[in-house]
């Protein structure tokens, strides 16, 4: 049972990511969605068995970078991989994300192949 949390303030982008994941053969059994970092923390607390978090950077209320810093400060039973999926594409932003606890990075816009290649490190491929 593979469960992925999608965190993006755009519901359309969450739909696009889900569709691309399914079309490229990446195996995900359940998607959980959140519209900002605050909602994402609630989802993490309610779903202890998450396998991966896909995280936008610029969101209202709590940004992606604030979320990942908070997540890494929590005493969770397992370390959930986090992949940033964001328009922030500078080297400085990539470094900041990784130093804050993100594991992977994908810049929008992305192709389905780029999504599969990035997430293939964390999800099985059919």
């Amino acid at each position: 049972m593979t469960k992925v949390l999608l965190v993006d303030d755009s519901a359309v982008m969450r739909k696009i990511i889900q569709r691309n994941i399914k079309e490229t053969g990446l195996v995900v059994d359940e998607f959980v969605e959140a519209g900002d970092g605050n909602q994402a923390l609630d989802k993490v607390n309610a779903n202890g068995d998450l396998d991966l978090i896909l995280l936008d950077w610029n969101m209202p209320n709590m940004s992606g970078i604030e979320f990942v810093k908070t997540l890494r400060s929590l005493n969770l039973s397992k370390r959930i991989p986090v992949v940033m999926v964001t328009t922030e594409g500078s080297d400085a932003k990539v470094s900041e994300a990784k130093e804050s606890g993100a594991d992977g990075y994908l810049t929008k816009p992305f192709t389905a192949d780029q999504l599969r290649d990035t997430l293939g490190d964390y999800l099985l491929v059919n």
């Binding site: 755009s10 519901a11 359309v12 982008m13 610029n58 964001t86 328009t87 922030e88 594409g89 929008k108 816009p109």
Partner: peptide
């Protein structure tokens, strides 16, 4: 939502 994301991606890319 889609128009917002479209502009966000174009703006982010341009930045």
């Amino acid at each position: 939502d889609a128009m917002g994301e479209l502009t966000n991606m174009i703006g982010g890319n341009l930045k």
